[in-house]
């Protein structure tokens, strides 16, 4: 479903991604872990070209999105993204936050979009907040709305960029619960996170990134109990 070949990314003189090769299958949940500065977020943002890539290829359902002829807006409409800072639209009510993209991008009728938005709000447990403005919500509620907003486009896969890092500890659970449910429903997901428990519980595969490379990848149980690389061992000893 996602195939990354020889991905390189430099910011000025700084080479952030050195040579990334990875494949994500349909309905697979891939968790990306690693120390800060490893290039995890950049890797994720390259997948829907929020960051332009320096060289290499990325295929989404066999379409080369690095080809200049590809309509990137169409690709992005099918790849949901959830940000660390939520990035809700503060000038719109919660319901409008969710309805806007389906109506403007996919030209869904208003009634249909609204029905779908309310369904999604119910799914993330926030139907009573439909008419609230984002500023009146807690961090955990904001992130659940952000997930609902991404889901409203009915994406084929979801990218999560440290979705719980900006949250107070007591709110992490409610967001992870939504994500777990999503995984159970069969969503293809790539999740950058520091939540090792989530990685272990939900992940089909864990990638350990450091210094711009994928150092090691394996299914979670193996990676956490029997890391092969020294750098993986060193990292895990600090976070577990």
């Amino acid at each position: 479903m996602i195939k990354v070949e020889n991905l390189k990314k430099t910011f000025g003189d700084n080479e952030v991604l050195k040579d990334i090769n990875v494949e994500v299958k349909k309905q697979e949940v891939v968790v990306v872990i690693g120390p800060s500065g490893a290039g995890k977020s950049t890797f994720l943002r390259c997948i829907n070209l929020l960051d332009s890539i320096t060289s290499g290829h990325i295929f989404i359902e066999s379409v080369d999105i690095t080809d200049t002829k590809t309509d990137i807006n169409k690709i992005r409409a099918e790849v949901g993204m959830v940000f660390q800072q939520f990035n809700l639209f503060p000038h719109m009510k919660v319901l409008d936050n969710i309805m806007l993209a389906p109506m403007k991008v996919k030209k869904v009728e208003k009634e249909k979009a609204q029905k779908k938005a309310l369904e999604l709000l119910k799914k993330v447990g926030l139907e009573e907040k439909a008419d609230a403005y984002p500023d009146s919500l807690s961090g955990g509620q904001k992130q659940r709305i952000a997930i609902a907003r991404a889901l409203a486009m009915e994406p084929k896969m979801m990218l999560f960029d440290e979705p719980t890092s900006a949250l107070d500890p007591e709110m992490v659970g409610e967001v992870l619960d939504v994500m777990k449910q999503l995984a159970k429903d069969g969503m293809t997901m790539v999740v950058v996170t520091h939540e090792m428990g989530f990685a272990r519980e939900v992940g089909d595969r864990v990638l350990f990134m450091d210094g711009g490379y994928i150092v090691e990848e394996n299914e979670p149980h193996e990676l956490f109990s029997h890391p092969r690389e020294e750098r993986t061992k060193a990292f895990l000893s600090k976070v577990l």
């Binding site: 807006n73 992005r76 993204m81 940000f83 639209f89 993209a101 991008v105 907003r149 991404a150």
Partner: peptide, 20 residues
């Protein structure tokens, strides 16, 4: 982040400008 969120939802640059 506002522009990024809008673009990640598939909006064009012009749409993101206009609505967000």
């Amino acid at each position: 982040g506002q522009m990024e969120a809008a673009r990640s939802l598939g909006m064009s640059h012009a749409q993101a400008m206009r609505y967000i």
